[in-house]
Amino acid sequence: MTSADSDGQGHDRTAARAARRERKRDQSREEILAGARRVLLRHGIGAMTLDAVANEVGMSKTGLYYYFPSKDALAFELVHGVIEAQAKAVEARVGEAADGGGALRAILGGTVDAFAPRLDDFRLAFLFGQVAGAGAIRWDREQFERIRPLNDLLFAKATDILRQEQGERPPRAAVEPRLMAFLAYLSAIGLLTMKGMVEPMDDPLLYSDEQLVEGFSRIFEAAAAPGGEG
Rank of each mutant, 00 (worst) to 15 (best):
S6K: 11
G10E: 15
H11M: 12
D12L: 12
R13M: 11
R21V: 08
E22W: 00
R23Q: 15
R23L: 13
R23P: 03
E31N: 07
E31R: 08
A36D: 02
R37P: 00
R37V: 07
R38S: 11
R38P: 01
R38D: 14
R38E: 15
L40D: 03
I45P: 01
M48D: 06
D51F: 00
N55H: 13
P69T: 10
K71W: 04
D72I: 08
A75R: 01
E77Y: 03
E77V: 01
E77I: 01
V79E: 07
E84L: 09
E84T: 10
A85M: 06
A85Y: 05
Q86T: 05
Q86M: 14
K88G: 06
A89K: 13
A89P: 00
E91R: 13
E91K: 12
R93F: 00
A97M: 10
A97P: 03
L104Y: 10
A106Q: 12
A106Y: 10
L108V: 12
D113M: 02
A114D: 10
P117M: 07
L119E: 01
F122L: 08
R123V: 06
F128Y: 14
G129Q: 11
G129Y: 12
G133A: 09
A134G: 01
A136N: 10
D140T: 09
R141V: 01
E145A: 14
L150I: 08
L153E: 15
T159E: 15
T159K: 04
I161D: 07
I161A: 06
R163P: 00
A173T: 03
A174S: 12
V175Y: 04
E176R: 13
L179S: 11
A181P: 05
A184G: 08
Y185T: 05
L186Q: 13
I189Y: 09
L192K: 08
L192Q: 11
G196S: 14
M201Y: 11
D202N: 15
D203S: 10
L205K: 04
D209Y: 02
D209C: 01
D209F: 04
E210G: 07
F216P: 00
R218G: 09
I219D: 03
E221P: 02
A223S: 13
A224Y: 02
